[in-house]
Amino acid sequence: MPGGGFSTLPNGRVVVALSLPNTIGDGHPARFLVHAANRSRALTRLRNLGLRAVYLRGNAEPPTPDEITAVLHHPDGLLWRRQPQRGAELWHPIRALLSEPSRPY
């Protein structure tokens, strides 16, 4: 079941977290983090990358403080990783996901 949420930062910008099912070729869901000016722009960034059917309904799974820190310290402001994490899996930049043509998105 897809889920997600957002956190508003003190400067007015937001961090949106989305959990999407079966986005990775191995069938495990993935968690996406997006840093943007507002929720609409965050979802637009994902849609522009090919994730057309992403919506944020409610705030059931907001980003954790660790997730917020990870996305704020990344120059692209857009990260992903599998859920549940495999061992000590780190966050991946979105370009790592898009550069593998064998995976359906």
Rank of each mutant, 00 (worst) to 15 (best):
V14Q: 07
P104W: 01
H92P: 00
R31M: 10
S102T: 13
V34H: 02
P75G: 02
H28T: 10
V71R: 00
L56P: 00
R52F: 05
A36M: 04
D76V: 08
P65T: 08
P2L: 09
P84N: 10
G27V: 06
T8W: 06
V14R: 01
P104K: 06
S99V: 02
G87A: 03
A36R: 02
N22S: 13
L33N: 01
R39H: 05
A96T: 09
T23W: 00
P29W: 02
L18G: 01
R81M: 06
G25K: 08
A88N: 13
R52H: 12
T23C: 05
A88F: 09
R39C: 03
L56Y: 01
E61M: 07
V14C: 05
I24A: 12
P101F: 07
L51G: 00
L18R: 05
R45K: 15
H35Q: 01
G27D: 10
R41E: 15
Q83T: 11
L97W: 15
N48C: 04
V71E: 07
A37R: 13
R41H: 10
Q85K: 09
N59P: 03
P84K: 10
Q85N: 03
L46P: 01
A53C: 03
S40V: 10
L90D: 15
D76A: 15
V14K: 05
Q85R: 14
V16C: 01
S19M: 10
L98I: 10
R45H: 13
A60L: 13
P62I: 07
D66T: 12
P75V: 03
A42Y: 08
A70S: 10
P2F: 07
P62Y: 03
Q83H: 03
F6E: 13
Q85T: 11
P75A: 12
L97M: 12
D26N: 15
L9K: 02
R95G: 00
E67F: 02
R39I: 15
Q83R: 11
R57G: 11
T44E: 14
D66N: 12
P21R: 05
A60W: 02
W91G: 03
D76W: 01
I94F: 09
V16M: 02
D76Y: 08
S102Q: 09
L56H: 04
L43T: 01
T8C: 07
R57M: 11
A37D: 15
T8S: 14
L72D: 07
E89M: 06
T64A: 06
R81A: 07
D76N: 14
E67T: 09
L20I: 13
P63Y: 01
L46V: 03
L9A: 08
L46G: 01
A37P: 00
E67Q: 14
T64G: 09
L79E: 04
P75N: 10
R45I: 09
L18W: 00
N48L: 12
I68W: 02
V15A: 07
S7Y: 06
T44G: 07
A37V: 14
E89P: 04
T64S: 15
R82L: 15
A30I: 13
R86L: 15
T69R: 12
H35N: 11
R86M: 13
S7L: 11
R82K: 12
L97R: 06
